[in-house]
Amino acid sequence: MIKRVFSNLFGSPATRLYPFTRREPFAGSRGQLKNDIAKCIFCGQCQRRCPADAIVVGKKPDKSWAFDRYRCIVCGYCVEVCPVKCLSMDPKHGD
């Protein structure tokens, strides 16, 4: 225990000095949902699978993809079912 006391007193701090130094997010971490809209075919798979109803896809002729990040539970299910893989999880945590 004495060793721990000394390393706590004189060692470098355990704290991550956020927001002054930002750590790199881990690869594969689920941060927030991104849509590469150029690839999106507006099929509506993500809307049907989303457990929290956070995505609303507008069908033809008025195609749109609306995403409410205040509903999204960051589960990544939509990314998994997307047939053209235009959805992705950005490991960064928001802005």
């Binding site: 881990f26 594969g28 971490s29 689920r30 539970i73 960051v74 589960c75 990544g76 998994e80 999880m89």
Partner: peptide, 20 residues
């Protein structure tokens, strides 16, 4: 977070196995 992608809600289980 490194292995499953989230700190708390791992979200890796699915019916039929695991997702990651």
């Amino acid at each position: 977070e490194r292995t499953a992608g989230h700190r708390v809600m791992l979200g890796v289980s699915c019916v039929g196995g695991v997702r990651r």
